[in-house]
Computed example of a mutant assay.
Amino acid sequence: MLLGFEHVGTTTIDLDRAIAFYCGLLGLTVALRKHYDRGEVAFLDTGSGMLEVACPIADVARSRDVPPHEAGLRHLTFAFDSLDPIVARLEAAGFPMIEGPRAAYYNEVLKRLAFTRDPDGILVELVERADGR
Rank of each mutant, 00 (worst) to 15 (best):
V109R: 14
F115M: 11
G94P: 00
D84I: 03
A79D: 02
Y106N: 15
I122T: 10
A71H: 10
F5S: 04
G47V: 04
R117T: 12
R33W: 06
G132Q: 09
D14S: 06
L83Q: 00
A130P: 04
A130V: 09
L2P: 14
P67W: 03
E91M: 08
L3V: 14
L32M: 15
L110D: 02
H7A: 12
D120L: 03
V53C: 06
R129L: 15
D65N: 11
L3D: 12
A31I: 01
L73H: 08
L44C: 02
L83S: 02
R117L: 14
P96G: 14
I122A: 09
E99Q: 10
K34Y: 09
A88V: 07
D84C: 02
R117C: 15
E91K: 04
A130H: 02
S48P: 00
A58T: 05
G94F: 08
P67F: 08
A92V: 05
G94N: 10
V124P: 02
G39Y: 03
K111G: 10
L90W: 04
T29K: 12
V60N: 06
L126R: 05
V109W: 11
I86C: 05
S82L: 10
F43I: 12
E125F: 10
R17L: 13
A58V: 04
F95K: 03
L113N: 11
F43A: 09
L44E: 01
L25K: 06
V53L: 06
V66R: 10
L28I: 02
I57F: 03
A79W: 01
G72I: 13
V124N: 07
G4Y: 09
D120S: 02
A92G: 05
G100M: 09
V41M: 13
V87Y: 02
P68N: 04
L32E: 15
A31M: 07
L90T: 06
L25P: 03
R74G: 11
T116W: 05
V127A: 08
A88L: 08
A79Q: 00
G49Y: 04
Y106K: 10
R64P: 00
P68L: 07
G49V: 03
R38E: 15
A79E: 01
V66K: 07
V87R: 00
R129P: 00
I98Q: 11
L15F: 04
E6S: 11
L51S: 03
A92Y: 09
H35I: 14
A79M: 01
G39W: 08
D81N: 05
E52T: 04
P68W: 01
D45P: 05
G27D: 02
L113T: 11
D81L: 01
A71C: 10
D131M: 14
A20W: 00
R117S: 10
